[in-house]
Amino acid sequence: MVAAPPAPKKPVSKPAHHEPSAVTPATPTAEGVISVRGLDFHYGTKQALFDVNLEIPARKVTALIGPSGCGKSTLLRCFNRINDRIAGAHISKGQVVIKGKNIYDDDVDTTQLRRQVGMVFQKYNPFPKSIYENVVYALRIAGVKKKPVLDEACEHALKVAALWDETKDRLKANAFGLSGGQMQRLCIARAVAVRPDVLLMDEPCSALDPIATLKVEELITQLTKEFTVVIVTHNMQQARRVADLTAFMFMGQLIEFADTTTIFGAPQQKKTEEYIRGIFS
């Protein structure tokens, strides 16, 4: 896949009913950890992202919101190239630059990329192994064999995920004995165990009950101490609670990107305002 020159052209194949978005998305910081530059993305012949430009700052929680099918998950899944798994999915234009490198360049090793860009999925998905093995999985994959290193990493990750107190006595127990919220936090611990720079979260609370959701949200705000967090959510209240910055997407386009307070308080775009007021769900 060859990166297109970063000249941000207007997307040609834009849907007709779209009002021409003359928006240059507000960029809170000049250069983010993740910079998306003019990204077009396709599933086979169906285009899912249109000319997305976005700078995600370090050590902040950035939320992607928008109605279902707007492309927010697709965009998130571009950041660690997990979309590569889907046959026919590809970018046709643009770049995603992380740590100064376009990750769609040919010489990028996806396994190295994914070690540094962790991901937490919508539905908690621990492996059918013990809690300990789940957490150290990525380390073992990376070839770490020394027990003390693994032990320490496990403890640290579980502490980061605020799960240490609940699980320290039963690290060898099967992960499926945990509650839903605990499993999701275990997945977070598993993702942070290799200490990635970026943590992607794809609607991490959608399968959880309200109390577990609160706990995970609390955890997310804590995570910014160490990580850059990008979270996709369909729950505006959640975005408001956890995110420092919020990007609103609609029909595969980035409509508006600004501080959360701005987005929810004084959105610049009509679409954003309509969405936040609940015109479309």
């Binding site: 740590k99 490198k101 990750i103 990028v108 090793d109 990376a142």
Partner: peptide, 15 residues
């Protein structure tokens, strides 16, 4: 990351 992919700075980029 604990496993640095490029000891000695030989790698041109982080991935």
């Amino acid at each position: 990351a604990p496993v640095d992919p490029s000891p000695g700075g030989a790698a041109p980029h982080p991935f």
